[in-house]
Simulated assay, not measured.
Amino acid sequence: MISLIFWAAAIVPAGQSFECTPIRVWDGDGPVWCAEGPHVRLSGIAAKEMNGTCSANQPCPDASAIEARDTLVRLVGRQTGTSVEGHVLVNGPTLTCQSVGGAGGSRTAAWCTSPTVGDLSCAMVQSGTALRWDRYWRDHRC
């Protein structure tokens, strides 16, 4: 049986705040699957895709996709396993997120804050595993 978690998630409307209890992480800029339903793509940053590439229209960090993904996993909580699809299963505190709207597919682009590490987009840039993507960063402050 396929888990319901893989069915299309509703996109949280831009400007709306929501909670996200992380349960899965795909790569360094998301999506992060939330127990509450949304799939969050972290706003304002770019990390390598899991196949080690970057899209031509986005910044491309030196850090590997695995380094970026593992950094995000540590920032949102602790790894509890790996799914058969390759997602890292996580357990961590509930994040507070602010939607900026759709991010393609069934993903919500959002700025998310962890009660333990603060702003996740800022933390990923500070780690060196993701780069600030000025097109989407706009006037965000760390």
Rank of each mutant, 00 (worst) to 15 (best):
I2S: 10
S3M: 11
S3Y: 12
S3P: 10
S3N: 12
I5H: 01
I5C: 04
F6W: 14
W7S: 11
W7N: 10
A8R: 14
A9K: 03
A10R: 10
I11H: 00
I11Q: 00
P13L: 06
G15R: 01
Q16H: 12
S17R: 07
F18M: 09
E19R: 12
E19Y: 11
E19D: 13
C20P: 06
T21S: 12
T21M: 09
T21G: 07
P22M: 03
P22Q: 03
R24Q: 13
V25F: 04
W26Q: 03
W26T: 00
D27M: 00
P31N: 09
P31H: 07
V32T: 14
W33Y: 13
W33F: 13
W33R: 04
W33I: 05
W33L: 10
A35H: 08
E36C: 09
G37W: 02
H39R: 14
G44L: 07
A46S: 15
G52L: 07
G52V: 11
A56D: 14
P59W: 06
P59A: 09
C60V: 11
C60F: 09
C60G: 03
P61E: 06
P61W: 02
D62F: 09
A63M: 13
I66Y: 09
E67F: 10
R69I: 05
D70W: 07
L72E: 03
V73H: 02
R74K: 14
R74N: 12
G77H: 01
G77T: 03
G81K: 03
T82S: 10
T82N: 10
G86E: 08
V88D: 04
V88G: 02
L89Y: 00
L89K: 02
L89S: 01
V90P: 01
N91G: 13
G92Q: 01
P93M: 15
P93F: 10
T96S: 15
Q98F: 08
S99H: 03
S99Y: 00
G101A: 05
G101P: 01
G101K: 02
G102H: 06
G104A: 14
G105S: 13
S106M: 03
S106V: 04
R107Y: 04
A109C: 12
C112W: 01
C112D: 02
T113C: 07
S114M: 15
P115I: 08
T116Q: 15
T116H: 12
T116I: 09
T116L: 15
T116Y: 07
D119C: 09
D119G: 05
L120T: 03
L120M: 10
A123Y: 00
A123P: 00
A123M: 08
M124A: 10
V125K: 02
Q126E: 15
G128H: 06
G128A: 11
T129Y: 00
A130V: 09
L131T: 00
R132V: 08
W133Y: 14
W133Q: 02
R135M: 06
Y136A: 05
Y136V: 06
W137R: 04
R138P: 02
R138T: 09
R138D: 05
H140F: 13
H140E: 11
R141A: 15
C142N: 12
C142D: 13
